[in-house]
Design a protein around this nucleic acid. Structure first.
Length: 367
RNA sequence: GUGGCUGUAGCUCAAUUGGUAGAGUGUCGGACUGUGGAUCCGAAUGUUGUGGGUUCAAGCCCCACCAGCCACC
């Protein structure tokens, strides 16, 4: 892996990430395909919508189809016929989001499969093994992502644990053609955020994730944490803000120096009729769009917006037609990849501040 | 034609011995951020087929009518 920042505008950066399966221009949005597919979007559509890299998930792929199948195909690229870079999340987030059936200790995480109730144990080493089998271009270490509301003491303990896990992950990682990212945590305590960032970034990872944000806290808190953390991160390595896909928050993150982001929100929302537009989010199910002949976003140049009306997609989504979900998903992915591309262009021109202000004002005005 | 059953929210149905109607679904909004096409939250909706009667009180009891279904001639 090679990463270079080609241009900077304040703290915002335009960069280029070179991976075995392709070059990724940053800032970048990465659509999420947990099970080896972006829901409602074929590989062709994903690429067509502008995605340069996609996410998958060690936790889910390990459960199904399982390592045997992945091994027999020689990894996710061959299995899913994905010829673009793939990043796999470790499953750390699942500890948090599926915590009812999990038990965490210093050794690792024991959990019951939500699919069949079987018991499994993830350790930092196991999660590396899984991701090496998957063969993703970028692997993430196992971390512990706490829910908001944890006190200082338990968060501190969690930060220590995440650091220890990071060391173990580094030691067990063998594939030279796979990059490994560490993940910083720290809840909503500035000191712990600093501590975690210092510890994790002192280790020889290829890049660094910022975890545990956008998990229910308000946006001011998120931004405060970013303000604390980003200046402490190495200039020469990519920074990945995990789980953020709100346009405004993405722009705020880019302004502070974030290079990569992923989120299920745009694709999940699309399936329920949530459409991202340049003048804010709309719910296409609303009866106001029943007879609307205009495109989802009049300012969008994507294929869906050039072809279909709001009224038609309103009808399809309300009827649960997968075609409606497919069209909405395509548009939302296009919208975010396009927003990233525009951000990049603005950074290169040295106009990111103005660009961000313009976009955010437009989104806020219409609502 | 005769006998029986049924008629309650758009739909499918609840409502202990008569005490002034609820649920699911659908509809209309909203939430969702390292993926549940999942889920959650909020809202609206009925002169209980029609017309009478009994009763302090009727979706429940009585009568007539209407509609649908079943059975038998």
């Amino acid at each position: 892996m090679r990463f270079e920042t080609t241009r900077r505008n304040g703290y915002a950066r335009a960069g280029k990430l070179t991976l075995d399966h392709g070059i990724v221009e940053t800032p970048v949005f990465m659509p999420v395909g947990t099970n080896g597919a972006i829901k409602m979007c074929s590989r062709e559509c994903v690429k067509d919508a502008g995605a340069q890299i996609v996410l998958s998930n060690a936790f889910h792929l390990y459960l199904k189809p399982g390592l045997d199948v992945l091994r027999s195909f020689g990894g996710i690229h061959n299995f899913a016929s994905w010829d673009i870079p793939v990043l796999t999340d470790s499953g750390g987030f699942q500890i948090f989001s599926l915590s009812k059936n999990m038990h965490v200790d210093d050794e690792g995480v024991e959990f019951k499969s939500p699919l069949d109730g079987s018991v499994h144990k993830f350790t930092p080493e196991k999660v590396i093994e899984i991701q090496e089998t998957i063969g993703s271009d970028i692997a993430m270490v196992l971390d512990e992502c706490l829910a908001p509301g944890n006190d200082l003491e338990s968060t501190k303990k969690s930060v220590k644990r995440t650091s220890k896990w990071a060391e173990r992950a580094l030691k067990s990682h063998t594939r030279k053609d796979q990059s490994l990212f560490g993940i910083t945590q720290g809840g909503f305590f500035e000191d712990l955020r600093r501590e975690s960032t210092a510890e994790i970034t002192s280790m020889p990872f290829d890049g660094f994730g910022i975890g545990g944000l956008s998990v229910g806290e308000d946006i001011d808190t998120t931004l405060r944490m970013l303000d604390v953390v980003l200046p402490l991160m190495p200039e020469n390595k990519p920074r990945y803000l995990m789980g953020v896909g709100d346009p405004i928050l993405m722009l705020e993150a880019i302004e502070r120096g974030v290079d990569m982001m992923d989120c299920v929100l745009p694709t999940r929302m699309a399936r329920h009729g949530g459409i991202l537009t340049s003048s804010g989010r709309i719910n296409i199910r609303a009866s106001a769009y029943e007879k609307d002949p205009t495109p989802l976003d009049p300012e969008c140049n994507c294929k869906v917006c050039k072809t279909y009306s709001r009224g038609y997609i309103h009808h399809l989504i309300k009827r649960g037609e997968s075609t409606g979900m497919i069209l909405a998903t395509y548009h939302n992915i296009y919208f975010l990849t396009n927003l990233m591309k525009q951000s990049r262009d603005a950074i290169i021109k040295g106009e990111f501040g103005e660009f961000k202000k313009f976009v955010i004002e437009k989104i806020n005005n219409k609502r």
